[in-house]
Design a protein around this nucleic acid. Structure first.
Lengths: 340, 340
DNA sequence: CTGTTAGCGCGTTCAT
DNA sequence: ATGAACGCGCTAACAG
């Protein structure tokens, strides 16, 4: 196993000192004579030399890695955010190390620890915070340790950790959505709420309910369930089961994210309920991949890619903790109709 | 900026030698006396010590990072694959460093170089190879250098680089799809081929054409274009424009991937062409997120997550170059209908 | 079982 | 402009 060429190999091969080789091959401000510089470059090329970044990081005590923690890369929400984070990081010359937690808060804490061990330059945490003081506190402690060691961190989600955060405007978005749907004439609503421990879900439910109240409408029927496609499917089935009782008169369903809405659409279709003729459906996020659905989904657009990009900016900036809102915008499409 | 605690800090704090601290804190086989062990652990906890992995990697000359290179994380195909790669890597105690190339071969080569500089343990390259000998050769050279330094590499795609590869059975899948569609009675086909330099696209087109030939049917009408959603949309529009001439009699369209098929469906819908009543549409990949489309999409299923998982296994195994097929399976759904 | 010490590959003063 | 030497944090002989 012929080991990689080292800087010393290059220096010797070029007949110069280690320091000189270092200066020409890695971004030093110091100048090196033209002749030597070329000798070193030739030697490096001949030996196929590549900087050992681990060693460089150690010597400089500064890595060029950015850590990213998401719930689930196969969820298009995070896929889009992650894509933007990677892209923006590359623009800054950083490599990205990703971790997936599958919504396990312990895994999230563990991943921050791993990234701290890696001495990454910055960490971006994407995804809903959890309604659990203890866990949140432990995560905050881990992040504090990371920042204590000189690291930077930024969040996408609820501003709960005392670090720079891009805050999706879940409440306002859902509020406006409720008003828009009320404007279409709907009066009885059901909400597929997702789990009550997910703050993102909670914020959206609360915003929606507040919007209905502001329109002078009664509280919606709340149907909890998992935050994913199957959760939306099951919740929609439960709604149908309640059609003749609690859910009587419901003409519009709000699923707190697009992926759940897709599940709900599938369930309604499977049970022969026409959308939007018999019931209207709305989601949240405006996932690009889902824009070609039929019927096209009424939803609330979040600037996903932009959020990822801005999170990286925040994580790389040197300013103190700040919360930046990411504006949500209602998009009415075919899955909701006007009722008399 | 209070720097992180080091092993030496811990050792001093616990009143033991550096070596002892190292032995208890990091996985050495060596045993340490119970008393000292506890003292060290306590000291580490008190100081909030975390191993500096960069230093550890340097000392051990072996990192615990796996590099992953994909075209585009926001493309659900790669999102699913990447998710599986991350998951499997975590299972092996490895962290994942991702890079996105957006189908730029230069970027791909560059990323392998970056990962080599990082001295990652293994690299997984996902995504279609390109029909360009020169570029392929340069990528191969870069990978060889990486492997020369003791790294391991695995591929998902065409077996062209002389490393372990998970080979999606594009040809056979498309071949079977053609036969299945022929079995439905279709005789005139169009193929939205994607770009001719993408081997994945080419393989699928060739397999499909071969399948038609085997069924005694004429060659399909080929319509090239980009490999993404918009490419599918545009190609479908071009197909419609040819309806009264070259494309006369075409009753079935094969888009070489699901995302393109979605674009095609959108275009057909926009132009008032009913699917499958007026024309049948089929895709390839069976992207999970797209399974709830209406009409549901006839496609060829690829075991995406499994492919990612297996690529990691290959990259971590010590065996020599091998090519493992990933079987493709035709899934007939609503977007294609039987014709007389 | 525990401690000493020599590297791992590179950056960076400090002389020259 | 160039080189010698020390340090970054940790592992792995080697010696006791």
């Amino acid at each position: 196993m012929p080991r990689d060429a080292t800087l010393e190999d290059v220096a010797r091969h070029a007949g110069v000192s280690l320091a000189t080789a270092s200066r020409v091959l890695n971004g030093s401000t110091r100048q090196v004579g033209r002749a030597l510089r070329e000798r070193v470059e030739r030697a490096a090329a001949e030996l196929g030399y590549t900087t050992n970044r681990a060693a460089q990081a150690l010597a400089r005590s500064a890595s060029d890695i950015l850590g990213l923690v998401v719930h689930d890369l196969s969820d298009p929400y995070f896929a889009v955010v992650a894509n933007a984070v990677v892209r923006e990081s590359e623009r800054h010359g950083l490599s990205v190390m990703v971790g997936t937690t599958f919504r396990d808060p312990e895994a999230e804490i563990g991943y921050v620890a791993t990234l701290r061990a890696q001495r990454v330059r910055a960490i971006v945490l994407a995804g809903s915070r959890i309604a659990d003081e203890t866990v949140t506190e432990r995560l905050r402690a881990e992040i504090d340790r990371f920042q204590g060691g000189g690291g930077r961190a930024a969040l996408i989600g609820q501003d709960l950790l005392g670090v720079d955060t891009v805050v999706p405007d879940n409440r306002a978005g859902a509020y406006e959505l409720a008003r828009a749907l009320a404007g279409l004439g709907h009066t009885r609503f059901a909400v597929l709420t997702g789990p009550s421990f997910l703050l993102t879900a909670v914020d959206r439910v609360e915003g929606f309910t507040a919007g209905l109240a502001a329109a002078g409408l009664p509280e919606p029927l709340l149907i909890p369930g998992p935050f994913d496609r199957d959760g939306g499917y099951l919740a929609a089935e439960r709604l149908l089961a309640l059609r003749d009782t609690t859910a009587a008169g419901v003409t519009c369903v709000f699923a707190v994210n697009d992926v759940m809405a897709v599940g709900a659409l599938a369930a309604l279709r499977a049970h022969g309920v026409a959308v939007p003729e018999q019931i209207s459906v709305a989601g949240f996020d405006d996932i690009p991949t889902l824009r070609d659905l039929t019927p096209s989904l009424t939803t609330v657009r979040l600037p996903l890619a932009d959020m990822g990009r801005r999170a990286v900016e925040l994580a790389l900036a040197t300013t103190g903790p700040a919360a930046e809102p990411a504006t949500a915008e209602v998009v009415l499409r075919e899955s909701t109709r006007r009722v008399s």
